[in-house]
Amino acid sequence: MTNYNLAKNYLDEEKTEWKPMRDGAGIGIAELGGEKENVVVLAADTAGSSRAKYFAEKFPARFIQCGVQEQNMVGVSAGLAYQGKVPYAITYAAFLVGRPWEPIRTTIAYPQNHVIFVSSHAGLATGPDGPTHQMTEDISIMRCLPNFTVIAPCDYEQARKAVKAAYDLKGPVYIRNAREKTPVFTTEDSPYEAGKAQVLREGKDITAIGHGYMVYWLLKIAEELKDRISIEVINLHTIKPLDEQAIIESAKKTGRVFTCEDHNVVGGMGSAVAELLSQKYPVPMKLHGVYDIFAESGSVKDLWKKYKLDEEGTKEALLEFLNKSK
């Protein structure tokens, strides 16, 4: 089994540091800017909060402030890419990929332009701004676009690596980040390869697949329940292209698959896994996440609790599925 070099004592929540993925992504892009001269960053009046500012401060000549113009930002990114630049377009998920979806389809996805979309404010982990800003459909609308790679890092450190890995991929990439602080359980030394699912914990009774911060809950749940049930935990950070082999292998071993995500269950990562398994290796599945609703304003903690996306809610859903699929 791969050594993932997870943080020391990562299962102890008290000892685990919490930092926002958007910070990791912003810092990673600024670091990359020092290595690669054709990296250009575009912002749409949220350079501060979506962390494009780290790059902007270091490389002002390669920073483009578009103002509140997401559609224009997409078109300009495409033009830059045609000319050999590697544009990173950064803002809140709803506005980054929701607002200008068709221009992304035509000017970026179809001609396979190598543009990297880096979001903040994905999921209910956006908090009190409410449903207009809590983007819970971004994976659905991005993974249905041909040629796109879709990545949802599990924490700050992984976000930092993912934005760099995206530079070496071909074609367009979407990287999804949460606004809120979440546990940092991987480390600088943890390996990262886009497209390769990470089996963070081996098990034999059930496969639990997550992306984003919910992978951390899964690790804790697996530890807590280890005397009752052996849970295999997979961090499916790359949702497209799917690591089919890893998922099928695990399904063969455990015979049932639970997925969870801070995203609509319609069209999300769980759907991607179901599309694969239903055709190549059908097993009982449970898709946990945001159940096709718009949530509401509230603190992230309150939202997690009410919509069952916290550790407790996730555990409940998993146990219910276990009982039903016995």
Partner: peptide
């Protein structure tokens, strides 16, 4: 902006 409130962060 609190959970359950009618007066959300943005108009609902």
């Amino acid at each position: 902006r609190k959970i359950g409130s009618r007066i959300e962060g943005h108009p609902n």
